[in-house]
Nucleic acid binder design. Sequence first.
RNA 1: GGGCCAGUAGCUCAGGUGGUAGAGCGCUGCGCUUACAACGCAGAUGCCGGCGGUUCGAGUCCGUCCUGGCCCACCA
Length: 860
Amino acid sequence: MGIPDKPSLDGLEAKWSGRWEADGTYRFDRTKSRPEIYSIDTPPPTVSGSLHVGHVFSYTHTDTIARYQRMRGKEIFYPMGWDDNGLPTERRVENFFGVACDPSLPYDPAFIPPAKPGKHPVPTSRRNFVELCEGLVVEDEQKFEGLWRHLGLSVDWSTTYTTIGTGAQRASQRAFLRMLQRNQAYQAEAPTLWDVDFRTAVAQAELEDREQTGAYHPIRFAGVDGAADVVIETTRPELIPACVALVAHPDDTRYQSLFGKEVRTPLFGVAVPVTAHALADPEKGSGIAMICTFGDVTDVVWWRELQLPTRNVLGRDGRIQAEPPVTFDDDAATHAWGELAGKTVKQARKRVVELLQESGDLVADPKPITHSVKFYERGDRPLEIVTSRQWYFRNGGRDPELREALLARGRELRWHPPYMRARYESWVEGLNGDWLISRQRFFGVPFPLWYPLTDGGDADYDHPIVPAEDALPIDPSTDVPTGYTEDQRGKPGGFMGDPDVMDTWATSSLTPEIAARWEDDPDRFARVFPMDLRPQAHEIIRTWLFSTIVRAHVEFDCLPWSDAAISGWVLDPDRKKMSKSKGNAVTPLDLLDQFGSDAVRYWAASGRPGTDTAFDEGQMKVGRRLAIKILNASRFALGVRGDGSVGSDDGSDVTEPLDRSLLAHLSVLVEDATSAFDDYDYARALERAERFFWSFCDDYLELVKQRAYRTVGEPGGASARRTLEITLSVLLRLFAPHLPFVTEEVWSWWQGGSVHRAPWPDPAEPRAATSPVDSDADPLVYLVAADVLGAIRKAKTTEQRSLRADVAHLRVTDTRDRVAALEAARADVLEAGRVRSFDTDLGDELAVRVELVAADAAES
RNA sequence: GGGCCAGUAGCUCAGGUGGUAGAGCGCUGCGCUUACAACGCAGAUGCCGGCGGUUCGAGUCCGUCCUGGCCCACCA
């Protein structure tokens, strides 16, 4: 290839990403056996969002590991997935086309969405809706792939999958049916957390607490049959009509006399019992609470354990329903209900307070408080609890044996960094129920089930109709079960499809199986599963990481991967997590264009594993400088080999003490970088290589420069040139995982093949070139020579003289060992420092006296 | 309430197995040196969060407290 006169970083991304694709540099070779393969369960990015610097950050980390393992000789299975399944895509399609999914509609093969979104969304069948989703995500996926190629991810793009694709649906449905068969999946009619805007149930893993303002409302309940009145405090007075009991702690002497007696709810006059339960906290509020169906999850516990009746007042739209839960005794109660029916929770709360004030049952002003309230992580309004029929996966939430087995899996997994395991354990230990997997949404994997309809037209949920595995994937809203015809759909004596789709995590938890093409390609599956690495961010340990372990555990009785590398977040300068919504995200493509991909990767790879890292353009500048320095230093290191006469140096031994000393240091560097990478610490590997490289440039290149220019045949020249070449070769390979473009560029100047398929350096490699091999190369020689050269430079700078100024006399005082080491490199030091005369003395530590030739004398 | 992580130069951060505090950015000065001026060389800057303890010796190990971030928790 040859060395360019003016090497540049410009255009390297396009040049090399194109070449890598053409050459199949990162193509997975499926003839390799499992032990020869390193497989990666890449996080599939959500395609309806956009990629931000946080993605660039963490995907770079994974790529450095992939490149390292590839150079170590592993065959890398490194697929990309696109997460196009789920709510974000639905939202985008609804807005983009102006449609709304109505699963009750039949599929219309000729359906065309409105050219422009209209005022009212066009009702669309589920399959039509899904087709629109699939069409829209293709564009995103192409954009994403372009960015990843520009960044230099060494992904094999021929193994890409999507989470809504046929293969993913088949795997997801198959795994579901098998869990159903093993009684690891079940359905139940139970109180569930419900988002009133998305109108779907949500799982524990999707919750987040948010601090909200609220108020304790002290409210009087009148005693029945001579029982005393009692005042409770509640933040949810609008749920008084849903009240089914009061509860206090069994030991609470204030209320013991009331246990077993009844009180009446204010406004509605419904008699409810006063009960005792250990969960009631005497310290909280007035120590006695109202149990509603359902105000919060504690209500559910009390309701279940005390076997209380259900009085639902809230509809699935988040409004007070039209019909009261009980028949009221008097007109006042009916009137009060009429005031509330149809109102949202917030409106109803306001009105109830007014009514309570009028009736005198609000015994004091509400006390404002702030408290945390459960939200769906994507939601805008607090979650409510409604009773509904849902599907669940057993995940240890109510099964101590399974929970312990999953905790053991967590201990079996190798975590990087190790402390991240604590998050897994606290999550598993805190599970309070099984995993709710059904969602009342559309763009997801459907439940592969139908239900027979009785003669009365009711679904027989206890006897679902199950398809054969080889028929998967199916959509029960359009496919017909064996033994039925389409015209029996929805008819008494006929069937109905399960209307729900699975939670996005119910599919994403199978990414190792999907990427490995479980059952669809048993040969590939056997070669890559279980995988080696799961890279991911720490905030989804409770969702993605945990659920993936659950699925592999129940289906294959193993971990889905041996190692998990947990990356941190990118923080903006205010130490907040960077995100688009906060308006502080930077477009990744702009960064790559501005600084170069290697420079941005350098910044990313400087972030310690698991550590949140500040977005820092300064680090990108440093990375760019490093890449340019590699170009220039390489130009020198290879340029001194001359043009046509290069061959005569080949095979020469490294004989000079300074050269051999440098190679001894290089050997240690390789050891350090290798052990760092083996420990998944790409950042330490980079930092060590970088430190060595700058010293190599500042000190070794200066010390050896004159000798390296000697013509072929002159003593010492070949040793220098050989050392430069060996060191450059090793350094390029050490940097290759981090800076794939500039290293490939330089490698191409004088080497064949790709640096990314070259063998990772071995610590023995630098020593092998010394003569005699593995000799007594003294590490001190290079260190002392560099120290002395630095002292000479400092003297010249202090005197405000040019570095070319001659030194009349140099005296170095140091310990015996170090003086001896210096003597070994004497000629190099004197030449590099332009020293005319030199002597040494023994002392406790390094002291250098530099007498410069007078400035005017130097001129003449 | 329980747990994890972090606190080192003005800023962003390194400092596995205890041994005289480091890098880059920024700042100051010098220098176009046959790899590099979109560069190089050199310089200044620190009660290593506080207080105890172990040790000949602690940024590093132990205890405790403070501050910040995050995770988890049945938050009426």
